[in-house]
Simulated assay, not measured.
Amino acid sequence: MGDMSTFGPATDLVVGPGFKDHFLGDGGGNSALGGVLPSDVEGRTVREITFTSDVVEIGKFPAHDYFHDGSLYLLDSPGHCVGHLCALVRTTNSPDTFVFLGGDAAHHCGEFRPSAYVPMPETITPNPVTLQDRNIPFCPGAWFEDLQTSRNRDPKEPLWQPAFGHNMDEVLTTIAHMQEYDGDDSIFVILAHDPALRSPGVPFFPESINDWQERGLGKELRWAWIGDVMRASKE
């Protein structure tokens, strides 16, 4: 969702299953909050990916090879809203690396980390807690386990469970599928609302992010959210 009017009418709006009926038709899902503005669709083609044909499965997500060359896969990832899509974007060949564009599949990294694929490490570098010497490793120790136990949550599971979405069962299923991607070191999982992406070392358009693995961005940002949680707990 955004201001599509910043793109000319020659730019198609690509959406997921059920979007047209829900937001543009008789589905009754359009509203000022999270809805579609007339300027988003007027004069442009709205292409709905239905995932009923020309579909492959990557992990547990139905995927549409958008350019038919393996460079961009659109992933059917419902839950947050009708027609929600994630994307898997190839960033290098030999070795193959990808960026997983999670959109609103989750709203905080603590909603899908830690997991069976990405357990809480014994030490974390760079240190997500201190803003000074980040080379001093942070040792979660019993902190996270005690925190989760006090909240009647499994220490091996994410800090939080999402509290809202169009379909909560689908939200949790999409997150579970995303966790499998997150456990692959060749995939950099990012969310639309992850504040760590504003870090100075993260390139912004028109810079390229193809060398994210070489830069170590996946490792550097994976646990950055812990610092926010710990600082907030002391306020």
Results as ranks from 00 to 15, higher is better:
D3A: 15
M4R: 10
F7W: 09
G8P: 11
P9N: 10
T11N: 13
G16I: 02
L24H: 02
G27T: 03
G28S: 07
N30A: 13
S31V: 02
A32D: 12
L33H: 04
G34Q: 03
G34V: 06
G35A: 08
P38Q: 08
S39G: 13
D40T: 10
E42M: 13
T45D: 09
V55P: 04
V56S: 14
E57T: 09
E57N: 11
I58V: 09
F61L: 05
F67C: 14
H68G: 10
H68K: 08
D69Q: 00
G70H: 07
P78C: 10
C81E: 12
V82C: 13
A87F: 03
L88M: 06
T92R: 01
T92K: 05
F100D: 05
F100S: 08
F100I: 07
F100C: 12
G103W: 00
A105Y: 05
A105C: 14
A106D: 11
H107A: 14
H107Q: 14
H108A: 15
A116N: 09
M120A: 14
P121K: 11
E122I: 14
T123M: 05
T123N: 04
N127T: 03
V129F: 04
Q132R: 05
I136D: 06
F138A: 04
G141D: 07
A142G: 15
E145Q: 08
N152M: 14
D154E: 07
D154R: 01
P155R: 02
Q161G: 15
A163H: 10
H166V: 06
N167I: 03
E170P: 14
Y181N: 08
Y181T: 05
D185Q: 12
D185Y: 05
F188N: 01
V189P: 14
H193P: 06
L197H: 04
R198K: 08
G201T: 04
E207H: 10
E207N: 15
N210E: 15
W212C: 11
E214N: 08
R215A: 15
G216E: 06
G216D: 09
K219E: 04
L221K: 00
R222W: 01
R222N: 13
R222H: 07
W223R: 01
I226Y: 01
V229L: 11
E235S: 13
